[in-house]
Design a protein around this nucleic acid. Structure first.
Length: 417
DNA sequence: TCTGGGGTCCTAGGACCC
DNA sequence: TCTGGGGTCCTAGGACCC
């Protein structure tokens, strides 16, 4: 029998921080989003206190003072590194693994007996925990959507959970739609309005009605929840469609040169990623955004330009981006966030050159050389475009943990006695 | 005072064509 | 006074995920 599983790291960012601070095991720990904005990871102790995911940090200030809570800023480079280690262990154990996000992966697995399947899952989770030190949960069922639900139960049970066809037949009436992967707040209320509350209600809804109300998404959900696979586990990575880099500022700014500096930074980040992935772009979008909550919520926006020849050249995109900033910028508007999105990605070897030779840029050597130097001597060591006002648009990260795995001076020291 | 970042997919509606 | 219908393509915006 063929099954689909989900393996998912528990409280991933918190577990990463605890890995190097074992004194924090059993204590309440929170990890904040970029700019120290919202809660993005909570230890069990925090969840038990009833603090929901995503609350703004400032609303928790008093609580953090009264209870002894350890707060961390997001340290994405550390988490990515740990993630890579976790899933390399998983991929050593199983042949078909599809990494879905920084902390979870789907996998295919075949087994003729539920008990041996259970044993293999238990073994896998202990192997990951022993090799990397990150606790994981495993849920297995017939489709991705069902497996995600099994994973939810596994987190509560503290051990792998397998839900086979007969389980779904018996329990379908008790599975609430709000606990289902793909049903967010908006869809949930739409389903409720249609008197569809449980998986059973969804099963029983005639296809034409479902199609009319929820379109293809509704039909797929119904199929997935009845064990009919709509989304197979895929080991081939689908090509990426866009590359984004954006950042909120600690304080707002209405200084165009500060915005240009920030946008230049995002151009460097995104174009570096293009070159690393051997991609080019022919659509450049620049974001200049205001706070979503203040009087200026509607003043920010996105401006874009299409490029005649797809490119991965930092210099070319830099010039275009600066032009867009100049065109869009309004004085006296307090900007809170800037960013760059590159779209219409095309593999470098498929680029078709323009008929008009004067617009072909050839900074290939320059870009490669800059990338090589930065690779060798540290990211951002030399860069295109001016770089002077970083402090003016930096985001907040007051509680960043050390670079345990990526900086020599931060590597943990073990004392043998 | 303070509210993340990076993605994907789907759909409605406008523009355009014959 | 009468004023089509059907198709494609593109894009903005919404919804979702982690």
């Amino acid at each position: 029998m063929k099954y689909i599983g989900v393996i998912d790291c528990n409280n991933f960012f918190v577990s990463c921080e605890r890995l190097f601070r074992p004194d924090l095991v059993g204590k309440p720990v929170i990890v904040l989003s970029s700019n120290d904005g919202c809660v993005v990871a909570r230890s069990k102790e925090i969840k038990d206190m009833g603090i929901p995911m995503g609350v703004p940090a400032f609303q928790l200030k008093d609580m953090i003072k009264n209870v002894d809570v350890e707060v961390f800023s997001s340290h994405l480079s550390l988490y990515r590194d740990i993630s890579r280690r976790v899933f390399s262990v998983v991929k050593d154990i199983l042949p078909i693994v599809e990494q879905y996000s920084i902390d979870e992966a789907f996998f295919s697995i075949e087994s003729d007996s539920l008990s041996s399947l259970q044993e293999r899952c238990v073994l896998m989770s202990s192997q990951v925990e022993r090799a990397v030190g990150i606790p994981v949960s495993i849920g297995v069922s017939l489709t991705k959507t069902q497996a995600k639900y099994a994973n939810r139960l596994a987190k509560k049970a503290g051990k792998p959970v397998i839900l086979d066809e007969s389980w779904w037949q018996e329990n379908v009436g008790t599975v609430q739609l709000r606990d289902i992967w793909g049903v967010g707040g908006q869809l949930l209320s739409s389903y409720r309005e249609a008197s569809i509350n449980t998986t059973l209600d969804l099963y029983q809804c005639p296809k034409p009605r479902l199609d009319k109300l929820f379109g293809i998404a509704g039909l797929r959900l119904q199929a997935e929840l009845s064990g009919q696979m709509m989304y197979p586990v895929s080991v081939v990575k689908t090509p990426q469609k866009s590359v984004t880099s954006t950042r909120s500022f600690k304080d707002t700014t209405n200084d165009m040169s500060v915005l240009k500096d920030a946008v230049a930074h995002h151009i460097r980040e995104t174009t570096l990623e293009l070159r690393e992935q051997h991609l080019t772009t022919s659509k450049l979008q620049v974001l200049l955004q205001t706070s979503r909550y203040g009087d200026y919520a509607l003043r920010g926006g996105v401006i874009e330009v299409d490029l005649l020849v797809p490119t991965d050249d930092t210099a070319v995109l830099m010039i275009e981006a600066m032009r867009l900033v100049e065109r869009f910028f309004e004085p006296k508007v307090p900007y809170k966030k800037a960013g760059v999105v590159l779209g219409q990605l095309l593999p470098t070897e498929q680029v078709q050159q323009s008929l008009f030779p004067q617009i072909i840029s050839d900074n290939n050597k320059l870009n490669t050389t800059i990338d090589e130097i930065n690779n060798r001597f540290g990211r951002g060591r030399i860069q295109l475009g001016k770089h002077s006002l970083v402090s003016a648009w930096q985001s907040k990260h007051d509680n960043l943990s050390p670079c345990y795995t990526t900086r020599w001076t931060d590597v943990a020291v073990v004392h043998a006695c």
